[in-house]
Nucleic acid binder design. Structure first.
Lengths: 230, 230, 230, 230
DNA sequence: TATGAATGAGCATTCATTCAT
DNA sequence: TATGAATGAATGCTCATTCAT
């Protein structure tokens, strides 16, 4: 089989922004502690209040430090937000879940990777939503988001092309457009399932979500037929 | 055939918010003119600056009237925004495009409704993006957006159920989840194609977009087989 | 005699900054009142506390209006300061004192113009000091100050050249350098006499100041001799 | 001739502030090095950014030490500034230039002392400007500046009185006022020549500056006549 | 001595909203 | 209806200074 799996996760995102390098780096353990506390506090406040509505004072109160300390480590609200988002990005892109190594079945691979995606999304759902909110205002976060999406898409497009070459997928679909469409589909399902305030509301058990997404994904690529058992 | 078409547009959105009833209604022609100018100006400013970044002063400057006049017609920024969004909603839901009445072919119907959807989206792309932005902050716009999405979804779910009943679609897919997933897929494609700052960037000719979306959609529902010609 | 008088005042300063055009112009009488009150209050506070130490809150308190009103009329502290300085500049440059028309005697003319200069300086002493303070920080005020000085100097240089041409002044002095030196001398005397915190402290009656300055000025130019009486 | 020379420099300034005694004195060589580095760095930063705009962090960065070390040696920003200014004062007051001992000619003596003054001013121009800036805000620097000026003035006044007593200078000028006026004149010329951002801009060769200043100075005192050669 | 993290008072600035004219 | 001046709560941010290590 091909070495690339056809799922929506993407381990190869170019990490042009080093997650640990956002803001000023502490030189002592005490500094590190404060900085970490601020990132954790910021995440909590952002998830609770949203980016625009969040106040620096609330973050420093949560982190139990002064406003001055905040500015010791970050240039402003956007910089902590970037740090928080980086943390989440890392989790999304490297979910640390063992891959299914034991199968060659494309459907199984897609299913596994959808499962991993939904799990990672669930952990970072609100933050993903916030990234969208901020990206609508701040161009630099726009690039960040786009970079991530593109990485997913390219990866999936490669996998689709591979399946087509092996005669397993419908030759009539454009690999790039399909990759984009199916990535979007899965991420919308994730939104519906894990964002209580998202555009859609889905109430489905997680495993049913995975199988539904996988069914649609494989159908769309014309992969279903070989698996007569389904 | 069924009376409902299986496309993503939805003419049956409960108009719980009457587009024309947002804000105060003018009693004179002069008032009407001012109010209209304000809505047009607001749309322009919102699309240019985004909701959060837009300033009432810019809107009234654009409309060539005073701040005082603004408050004569609207309660505040959210109310003009609601008025602007209503206008766009109407366009999205009733694109006013002649339906393909002459065919029973489900694929043709899906293609036609995708085509209509993309066209409507293109006209309102930036505003749809803004609605997402605002919905992330303001619960009442959240409901507005959800209501629209749900209407689309329910409509499509009914159509899918119908196709399944007629033996034309894969019985293995859950109609509601599929409707949600496929609506999401199409709207993501539209974002990619028409929002220069969206998460994805698609550069595809409009008609190719329609056919790609339709192919994936029909494949996903298992509709492709009967259409051997494709 | 020449039509230019050899004194340090200069009515021909190019008013490249229209005093009345600094900041936003009011459209109503009420606005005008508020704006005027702010300028007066700002002058008072600036003269009392200095530019750097002055606080916007003190200015608006003095003007009995809100901080918001301040920003209705001025962009910030520098802009009110510019407005205040403009007012003083106008006074310095157009003291509105009747010129001695009845004499051709250069010494009398110099004396008259020194008298006018000292009088104008006395009214604006603290503000002149502040302008120096601000000019040390803000380049745009630097230009403002330089423009004024240069205008004085050029005017005086012309007068000196004229006196030399008429054989009344020492041919050995460079008109421009002398103009600069003598303008500086007079302005330093004015500082010493009218700025309690200036570099020098002079305690001399005003009229003695005028005659001392005039004596030095005319001596320096070699004008004394023809006036045998002195 | 009299033992006092009639130039603007003044070697007798009461050194009420011992230049080396400002701040804490180091007990070790390492401490001395740090302290010296801080003074040098402070001068550089002050001259570059001005007093008000300069930041302690920039000074310590320039001196390659920590903020903590700064406070080991100085009480605050004003104290380093005092130390820096003292350094410059010493240079201004004791230029270390060999006096013209070989002449009794008052004009030559004035010329020599103007020459020395301009040379010293050039080395410390920016710092003199800063002292004015700070004196406008801080009363203790005000005294410092005034003390220096007064010393110059008194010294010159004595010289003028001496010349008058010997029948060499115009009896009609008040020695104190003349001393002040002429000191001011020379210092203004120095500003114009050596401060690119000063109120005046003079572009004259240094030696021409000296001769022009001397010519005006001697003229003003009525000293020129005896020197027929000039 | 040297370090650098922590502090927080203090100030400028924004902008939706009100209301007298 | 239309106007635009007035309002001030709310917030981000700076930077000299302290002090534990």
């Amino acid at each position: 089989m091909s070495t690339t799996s056809a799922g929506p996760t993407d381990p190869e995102l170019p990490s042009f922004v080093d997650p640990a390098r956002v803001g000023t780096q502490p030189a002592t353990a005490r500094g590190q502690r404060t900085r970490d506390a601020l990132i954790a506090a910021a995440r909590k406040v952002f998830e609770r209040d949203g980016y625009v509505e969040s106040r620096l004072v609330d973050i420093v109160a949560e982190a139990r430090c002064s406003i001055g300390s905040f500015y010791t480590w970050f240039e402003g609200k956007d910089e902590v937000f970037a740090a928080v988002v980086q943390q989440a990005q890392n989790d999304m892109l490297h979910p640390g879940i063992a891959r299914v190594e034991s199968t060659d079945d494309p459907v199984e691979i897609i299913a596994a990777s959808n499962r991993a995606y939904f799990a990672a999304y669930e952990r970072n759902a609100r933050l993903n939503q916030l990234l969208d909110q901020v990206a609508a205002v701040d161009p630099s976060f726009r690039s960040l988001r786009r970079a991530r999406s593109q990485a997913f898409v390219e990866r999936n497009a490669r996998a689709i092309r591979d399946l087509q070459a092996r005669g397993l997928a419908d030759q009539g679909v454009d690999p790039t457009v399909a990759a984009m469409a199916l990535s979007g589909m899965v991420s919308r399902l994730a939104q519906g399932a894990f964002l209580p305030d998202g555009p859609y509301v889905i109430e489905v058990a997680p495993e049913d979500l995975v199988s539904a997404a996988t069914r649609l994904w494989t159908n769309a690529l014309g992969l279903t037929q070989p698996q007569l058992g389904r």
